[in-house]
């Protein structure tokens, strides 16, 4: 063995075993590890899906492993009859769409302006954004500011406090710098286009791949966020889905506010169905995003990631 130096020129000398044996061992190890990893991701998800419509007694007593046992839609029926879930979905859709639209708009406008090298004070303004990557006020002052603005328990608290993701702003800045040739802009000036017009008519259409990535990232972030809702909202009718999920899945408020299973006669019955409802909740809340996954993956790995590393 020649140590860690690149020994491409003469790898034959570093050959400790025959290629065949080495490669066969490699194949076996890789198949085992990757197979295990794939199973570790898929099996829990698969189990939750089959558990969500199997007979709850069979699941709770450990008789369901590979195939569902019995069939019931009680869990789904109950969770879909719960007004908290529906309100959560509606609230989440509202918050997510508004917050995503605002975030992407701010990232694109500021990112574009800061990509223009001839803009006086450009570096100073960029530095202001950079500072927030290293230092921020922390949870408590942030909460007090939102409170001071009178935004507690309003839709604004779900949209404004996280409106600009500085990291994404930097990605957008880098993207605009490299995606718009100077010649294009000079030609537009000769035609008498204003800065604003150029941004809207030429820069934005050129940034379509960037916009797609940013919209996707923010959709997923906003849909999955729960902490701001936890600290800024106390009015249950405003809770987004994630907070409702937290109360049902983590705090086990299956029967607390009464809607899911309070009509069930006994404690045992509540226990029995409680788990079933939780499996169903996980399925209902996760499937839409997992369906988005293959589509998103293509975009994210192409645009966002490379941009992030170069940025």
């Amino acid at each position: 063995m020649t140590g860690t130096t690149l020994s491409l020129a003469r790898p034959a000398r570093t050959k400790p075993m025959s290629i065949d044996r080495g490669d066969r061992a490699y194949t076996v190890v890789v198949a085992a590890l990757l197979g295990g990893a794939v199973l570790a991701i898929i099996y829990p998800l698969y189990f939750i899906v089959i558990a969500s419509f199997s007979e709850p007694d069979a699941v709770n007593n450990g008789r369901v492993w590979v195939l569902p046992e019995g069939f019931t839609l009680d869990g789904y029926r109950r969770l879909l009859a719960d007004p908290r879930v529906w309100r959560g979905v509606v609230n989440s859709l509202t918050y997510t769409s508004l917050a995503t639209a605002l975030s992407v708009a701010l990232i694109l406008t500021a990112g574009y302006a800061l990509s223009r090298k001839e803009l006086p004070w450009r570096n100073a303004i960029t530095a202001l954004f950079l500072v927030t990557l290293f230092f921020d006020g922390g949870m408590i002052p942030r909460y007090l500011v939102v409170k001071e603005l009178g935004m507690l328990n309003t839709v604004w608290a779900m949209i404004l406090p996280n409106a600009v993701a500085v990291w994404n702003l930097l990605i957008a800045r880098t993207y605009f710098t490299s995606a718009i040739p100077v010649e294009v802009r000079e030609a537009a000036y000769l035609d008498g286009a204003s800065e604003l017009k150029f941004f809207l008519r030429i820069a934005l259409p050129l940034a379509k791949p960037l916009i797609a990535v940013m919209v996707l990232i923010h959709l997923v972030w906003n849909w999955n966020a729960f902490f701001d809702a936890l600290i800024f909202l106390t009015d249950e009718s405003k809770f987004p889905l994630q907070l409702v999920l937290r109360n049902i899945l983590v705090q086990s408020e299956v029967s607390a506010s009464g809607n899911l299973s309070s009509d069930l006669s006994s404690y045992a019955e509540q226990q029995r169905l409680g788990e079933l409802i939780k499996y169903g909740m996980i399925v209902v809340s996760t499937v839409p995003l997992l369906l988005l996954s293959p589509f998103a993956q293509r975009y994210l790995s192409r645009g966002g990631v490379e941009g992030a590393l170069k940025g």
Binding site: V220, W223, N224, A225, F226, Q242, L243, L245, R246, I248, L249, V250, K278, M281, I282, S285, T286, L289, L290, L292, S293, A296
Partner: peptide
């Protein structure tokens, strides 16, 4: 794509 709340759930 799975939220932290759901993972903990």
């Amino acid at each position: 794509f799975i939220s932290t709340v759901v993972v903990v759930g």
